[in-house]
Amino acid sequence: MKKYPKETAVGFFVFLGLLCIIYMSVKLGDLHVFADDHYSVTASFNDVTGLRVNSPVEMMGVPIGYVNQINLDLERQKAVLTLSIEKRIELTDDAIASVKTSGLIGDKYIKITPGGVGDPIEPGGAIIETESAIDIEDLISKYVFGKV
């Protein structure tokens, strides 16, 4: 008794298409739905202008994580970033986190410069040494108005 074979086939392919769209949205949107292979560390910066959540974290030019949160610490007047780092990467307490610019558009990312012989940073720990972004607009205005 095949009453609706065409409708069943169409429904199956529509369902399959929706699953493909959801999968591609998660993959291309760089959503970290099942990100249990990362651990979090924090880093405080004076200025993180242009940096966004999900910006990459790189070490030696290789992506090793992403920016999970950007918060403001009003007591210390700092921007506090929560970075998600792959578990296979072991950071030490003498590592340096810097806000850098990539490309002509000016996309920002975090560059981790590995330390030498420091103690490992535990999950939930903090990177102490940080370097904020260089503000090109401030440099140009200082040059134009003769304050350099």
Rank of each mutant, 00 (worst) to 15 (best):
A95T: 10
T82L: 00
I110D: 02
L18G: 11
I110A: 08
I127P: 06
K147S: 14
K2P: 13
I121F: 04
A97N: 04
M24R: 09
I96T: 13
I85Y: 05
V10Q: 14
A126K: 09
G11M: 07
L28S: 02
D37G: 07
G65R: 09
V99W: 06
I136M: 13
L91F: 05
E122D: 12
V80Y: 01
P5W: 06
G115T: 06
T101C: 05
V99Y: 01
C20P: 03
K108G: 03
T130C: 04
E7Y: 05
E137Q: 15
I112P: 13
H32K: 13
Y23S: 11
M59Q: 14
Q69T: 03
D37A: 15
D135S: 05
I121W: 01
I70G: 04
F13W: 06
V117M: 07
V144A: 14
N71F: 00
P114K: 07
K108D: 08
T113M: 15
V10A: 14
K3G: 10
G115A: 09
N68V: 07
V67K: 06
G29M: 08
L91K: 10
P56T: 12
I85M: 15
G115C: 13
L81P: 00
I85N: 08
S25Q: 14
E131Q: 05
L51E: 05
Y109T: 10
D30K: 06
D135N: 09
Y143A: 04
P114H: 02
S44V: 00
G103R: 01
E7S: 15
G124E: 10
T101D: 09
S25W: 06
Y66C: 06
D94V: 03
I22E: 06
A79T: 03
I121M: 08
Y143I: 02
Y4R: 09
V67C: 11
T130P: 00
P120F: 03
I105N: 08
N68L: 04
I134A: 08
N54Y: 01
Q77T: 15
F15A: 15
D36G: 11
K87Y: 05
L74Q: 02
V144F: 01
I64H: 14
I70A: 00
S132I: 02
K111C: 13
E75G: 04
R88L: 06
S25D: 10
D37I: 05
E7N: 09
A43V: 02
M60P: 11
G125M: 11
S55P: 07
P5K: 15
K142F: 08
V41R: 01
G118E: 07
M1V: 06
S132W: 01
T130L: 01
L139A: 14
F15Q: 12
F145H: 12
A79F: 05
I121Q: 00
V33G: 00
L81S: 03
C20W: 10
I121E: 01
L28M: 01
V26S: 08
E86K: 11
T113L: 09
G116R: 14
Y23A: 10
I70C: 03
A35E: 12
L81Y: 04
K111E: 06
A9E: 15
K108M: 08
S98A: 12
R76W: 01
T8P: 02
